[in-house]
Amino acid sequence: MDKLKQHFINREEEVISIKDLYKSFENLDVLKGINFSLYKGENVAILGKSGTGKSVLIKIIVGLLKPDKGHLQVLGKEVNTLSKRELDALRLRIGFSFQSSALYDGMNVYQNLAFPLRMNLKNLSKKDINLAVERVADAVSLKDKLSQMPSDLSGGQRKRIGIARTLILKPEIMLYDEPTAGLDPITSTEIIELINQVQHRFNTSSIIITHDLTCAKCTSDRIAMLLDGKFSKVGTFDEVFETNDNQIKEFFNYNFM
């Protein structure tokens, strides 16, 4: 199930560029000098223990949280200087798949998928919306669940609908927060394949946050280890895996136990 390297990575074009980024909550320093680049067409997996600030990092990328200091450019725009309207325009080009799926539980699956379209493209006809919804539901192979409520779906199905909902606006960057957490190996594999498909079909660049080494290995072109608020090691899976750093080794050994 190794990753098929069919896609094209453009190492000249940075879609996300982070320099010396810091973030703390009250008296808890979470991120302490993050430096990182995501290139066009590339998938990068971010690994790290629970509570190291992985979710905080990608929330900063979409402007849900403000960093204390540092530079953050996404698709050529300095996120923290954007006005609300500019930030919204940027957010439409980024897909964010939440750790908890975050489906709107007052709406059925169809309404969930249609929501970003209905809200952002006002002059779309009902037929166009139908088509778009069916297209993304098909991409995650859940076309038959459109009339169900999120509470009736399994964890894996919810994750897939969550991903489909972000795909409907055809994002250029995808941010996955623990896409395989809490899923059985078979469902995980389906999600992993979905992530790879998304990269190929929609030509996106992605950040995949995960604890799951299989997921990291199979979806990513590079891996970044988040340790103590910094990326301690960035490289291909094998490069990071063959490190001598004890803390990284500990993480890998623990995961393979």
Binding site: K59, L64, R91, Y104, D105, F115, P116, R165, T166
Partner: peptide
């Protein structure tokens, strides 16, 4: 409250609503 703690409100925000 449940929309807040299950990140649905943030999900709205990132889809530019």
């Amino acid at each position: 409250g449940s929309m807040k703690v299950t990140e649905q409100i943030e999900a709205m925000e990132v889809s530019a609503v």
